[in-house]
Design a protein around this nucleic acid. Structure first.
Lengths: 154, 154
DNA sequence: TTACAATATTTGCAAAGACAACAAAATCGT
DNA sequence: ACGATTTTGTTGTCTTTGCAAATATTGTAA
């Protein structure tokens, strides 16, 4: 029998949608959308990344990301320039303005994470995160087999 | 400092996107899209639901869902009819054809879940799912306060 | 050098999503 | 009983996303 209430993809999707829609509301105050925030968070984590790596990090499809980066560039949140070491690739960096907004959002994001994890012990939080990583890796391995193993993020 | 690699929304989104995109590929063989499958799974779980409840169960916004249901009705996967007890609401039911396809997909879905959870003990699986429910509930409570507490699913 | 692979962008198109306006029916207060 | 309000679902409109194909540019390998 198929019990939706204990079906992992259902539970992940449900939690993900809620996380996304609630935080989107909070982001409005900063004038950025959720996908923009994801890019900004990835760039805060490591600035000056190439577009392909950024796509892998944010789980945003590359053509979608290309359009998104153009929009963010128009908003002066980031800049793109050709890489010096490999002129095929494009390096994306936050502008000072973009970094400023990012730094303002981060505390909000962390508070929001606390709300999502209210009632969790530190051990539970750690366990949950570790298991989400494992789920991702299980599917990543599967995907790499199917499409000849690219998609590495550091 | 902001460490993306242990940020819950990031981990959930990443896992969710992977779950979605890999299973979408599998669904192609059955001629249904992922959102369609989500609706079918919800109806398999409980048939004859109203549109609003279905929206809550599938985390699909109601106007999006309304159009999706129209498309699925055209494909003869399900039928809509006005409720007899409350003529405002619409009752959605799988057709025999839709149920047949659903029954064929379910084993694939379960196998796919196993792949995602490879290497997990039964206790870990249970813990992961329970924690995802708790995350959802934490955000649901927050949301209910903001919008005056509707959105109940059974 | 020539062929091939990798990187990113762009475009077309269809599916999906969000938000507001609307219509129909139920409910509530008086 | 009646009018205002709420609930429920659909539709209009616009935006975003995803996927595939075409293009440009650069790197790599035979």
């Amino acid at each position: 029998m198929f019990n939706l209430a204990v079906y992992l993809p259902y539970l992940v999707n449900r939690a993900g949608v809620r996380l996304a829609e609630a935080f989107s509301d909070e982001l409005e105050a900063y004038g950025v959308t959720l996908p923009m925030w994801r890019v900004m968070a990835a760039l805060d984590h490591r600035d000056g990344q190439r577009v392909g790596r950024l796509a892998a990090m944010t789980s945003i499809e590359i053509s979608t990301l290309s359009r998104l980066l153009a929009a963010m560039e128009r908003k002066e949140l980031l800049s793109r320039r050709r890489s010096e070491t490999d002129a095929r690739s494009v390096t994306v960096s936050l502008t000072d303005y973009g970094r400023g907004i990012t730094d303002k959002i981060i505390p909000t994001a962390l508070r929001y994470e606390e709300v999502a994890l209210a009632g969790f012990s530190a051990a539970e939080v750690e366990a949950l995160k570790a298991m989400l990583v494992r789920v991702f890796e299980n599917l990543d391995a599967l995907d790499s087999v199917a499409s000849s193993g690219r998609r590495q993020i550091a």
